[in-house]
Design a binder for these strands. Structure first.
Lengths: 365, 365
DNA sequence: GATTGAAATGGCAGCGCTGTCATCGCGTCT
DNA sequence: AGACGCGATGACAGCGCTGCCATTTCAATC
């Protein structure tokens, strides 16, 4: 706002000249380093402000080997979860003085190119891999990178990572449905033909574990895959479930996106939710509240924040952080899409657990 | 995959040595420049691959003055629209060899800091400002930046930008409701106390224009502000509308987010949609389809793509692109949330336009 | 009063590239 | 046969910083 016009950006030398000191001193001052006298500091800072000086990271990283940047690899950008995770990450990285470089790798072509060129290499101090299903070769390639890795919402042996305990969360969700008296509980998982989404099968495992613990025999007819995003395969899956000899009274959807579409489909075919069918989602999607969807809420933003902390740690103290794992909690958020089972199906194994106050909630009006 | 272990990243000189040529030649080869003999080229490329060489942008930008990076300023990261826009931007930038630096500026504090430090300065070749309500001082500060600016989903005189014609879109949306026979059409706009969201009032203007063209007197009781995200103020707004002497039969929501919440509220209070109330949103949110919400769909991804093209243009040919504006179309997507007006209210001005085939659709079953 | 050391600052090389100019062959033209 | 031109390559400076070491100043110490 003051002083001469600044065309292409003042250099550190310009600031030095204006403040009447050496470039070294300006550098020290601006980095808040060691010993600079208060008066000098003030003079330098004023000069810098007057010139709207911003440091050239290119130049400084050339010397220090640090770029002040973190690369984030995501399989997508318009998925709710990723947006929320990034939203948590950005300010946290920012606070640590790190800029965020985003690589969205969605198609097979982009993917090949990314792993071929490794553009992040030497251009970032750490790479955050977010919900990205890496092939073994890709994994190896990233390892060669010589750059700290942090895995977000997924885990890798011996690598820093933040994620939730999917097994336990899915087990708890399933138990909630059991507590409501449901005995036939279906599970809908996303098909992922392109193989981009990281999945540990953990949620399905948790679901099965809870059923086993309740002494309910495994029935794979109740587990169905549906296309990951818009598409007809959900209708087909619902059709299958509704035409079973013993149809389910509850459906656990592996993601809220599936649950939302499920609600729509069921509304369309006049299956009242939760009177005839309870729906439980997984993610804690922002839309779950307006839709009144019960869900296992992941702290997406906090995952992002924790990822940022790990990134910072892994950059400044690689030994201590290289294998650090952060596990965040998932919370059941019961809402109107789940309710008591509509009554025993023929062949129901008595009512153990049915009146279990724990997870039971009022029926919606 | 081959050759000796690469610790911290090979340099161009390493590649040169390995290929038995000078660094200059490697540089030329890798940039696909002018004259390099095919044999040399092949040798260099192989050496580069063997060493997993990735160029240091820091070093090259120090010389060229180009960073190969574009900064994107967003007010948010978890809003659907921004995710979609970024999702369009990322691959397009990528294809142009540009990396994407994301600055999410959400709080007042972050905001002050961003405009104070101008971290993008000298660290990116262009700045894309996405749906960000700039204060005049901020605007001036960015102008001082000496960096090409591109405005996305908003427009500024004399600056490159991509956006939609909000006036026309809102006019068309309103006309659609008029064509369905609605005469009392309410408008719900987001309150933005923090002043982050860019808004030209254009949509409201279009709504008013359409009503005026239809000869309907302006009634400001039908225009209400609601808190931008979750909150009680929507209920209050609905209460106001439903308690008017002549309540509306249709509501035009300025954003799909508002429309979604509106659907929930109306369902909760037993106002059937669209039988008693038609709802039209604006955005083309990914959830509009599963929710069966009629909406004015913005091409969010295409906005992002166009923004990337503008960025590229503005970097390589500033004169030609500095003031280029790209206006993208908005399309009405009629769905189940809109239907014919439920019948004339007392005092309705005859039925002109009611049977107008144009926008009329079947009633949902 | 000479010596010491800490505080404050300056000087200078060099990080890894690219732009420019110089150099080297070698076929072509007069 | 000598001059010329062009394609292909190398040499070298320098981009804007930072790290290291040298230098200066001045108060504290013996």
């Amino acid at each position: 706002m003051v002083g001469e016009a600044v065309a292409k950006g003042a250099t550190l030398a310009d600031v030095a000249r204006r403040a009447g000191v050496s470039p070294s001193t300006v550098s020290r001052t601006l980095r808040g380093l060691s010993t600079v006298s208060p008066e000098t500091r003030a003079r330098v800072e004023e000069a810098a402000r007057e010139l709207s000086f911003a440091i050239s990271r290119s130049a400084s990283s050339l010397v220090t080997g640090r770029t002040g940047r973190v690369a984030v690899l995501v399989p997508n950008l318009d998925a709710w979860f990723l947006g929320a995770a990034l939203a948590g990450m950005a300010p946290a990285l920012n606070a640590a003085g790190l800029d965020m470089l985003v690589y969205s790798v969605t198609t097979a072509e982009q993917r090949a190119q990314f792993f071929d060129r490794l553009p992040a290499r030497r251009n970032a101090d750490a790479l955050l891999v977010v919900s990205f299903a890496l092939s073994p070769e890709e994994r190896a390639r990233l390892d060669d990178l010589g750059m700290p890795l942090v895995f977000v919402s997924q885990h890798e042996q011996g690598r820093a990572g933040v994620y939730v305990d999917d097994v336990e969360a899915a087990r708890r969700g399933t138990r909630y449905l059991l507590n409501l008296g449901h005995r036939r509980i279906a599970y809908l998982e996303p098909a992922d033909p392109s193989g981009f989404a990281w999945s540990s099968r953990a949620r399905l495992d948790g679901y099965r574990a809870a059923l086993a613990e309740a002494g309910i025999k495994r029935d794979d007819d109740l587990v169905r895959q549906v296309a990951d995003w818009q598409g007809p395969s959900l209708d087909a899956a619902v059709g299958r479930l509704l035409s079973l000899a013993e149809p389910p009274t509850a459906i656990f959807a592996e993601t809220d996106d599936i649950a939302f579409r499920l609600l729509t489909v069921l509304r369309g075919v006049n299956v009242p939710v939760p009177q005839r069918m309870s729906i439980l989602g997984f993610d804690g999607h922002a839309m779950a509240e307006p839709w009144d969807l019960s869900t296992m809420a992941q702290p997406a933003r906090r995952l992002g924040e924790a990822a940022a902390e790990l990134a910072h740690g892994v950059i400044h103290d690689p030994e201590a952080y290289r294998e650090r794992h952060v596990v965040l909690p998932v919370e059941l958020v019961p809402r109107g899409s789940t309710g008591p089972a509509p009554g025993p199906w023929p062949g129901d194994r008595a009512g153990e657990g049915a009146g279990n106050g724990d997870g039971v909630q009022e029926r919606r009006v």
